[in-house]
Amino acid sequence: MAKYLLLKHYRGAPAAVNDVPMDRWTPEEISAHVKYMNDFAVRLEGTGEFVDSKALAPEGMFVRYDGEGRPPVTDGPFAETKDLIAGWMVIDVDSYERAVELAGELSAAPGAGGKPIHEWLEVRPFLAAPPTISDCPHR
């Protein structure tokens, strides 16, 4: 029982095998892709492993504190940002192996030509709450 974030990148991940931009797909291929993603989430809810799934707009900006009584400073969007998150899915699974297995399935979503995209997904474990019985004896 551990939560993992499956991160999908617009940019920043290694190139997918079937690396054709979505706007070069046929409308049917786009529909098939969207359906695959939705079905995947529904299936994970059915297995009791789904937590959350969200997509992000590609354009954002950077914001920072600029001192007492001053409005925050904004900057961007930066077209050249190397790493760009497209969206995520959060899963709650029994093992790391299961998280990898599910990420592999999600990466098989169909793209151009109806073939799997083989896109690289980033798998990141959540930092959980500390256990009641610590493995660390000096706690």
Partner: peptide, 15 residues
């Protein structure tokens, strides 16, 4: 308690 959606937990129980 396990910080997952109720629908997910319901499916976990019924499975």
């Amino acid at each position: 308690a396990y910080l997952v959606p109720e629908a997910t937990m319901a499916q976990r129980v019924s499975r």
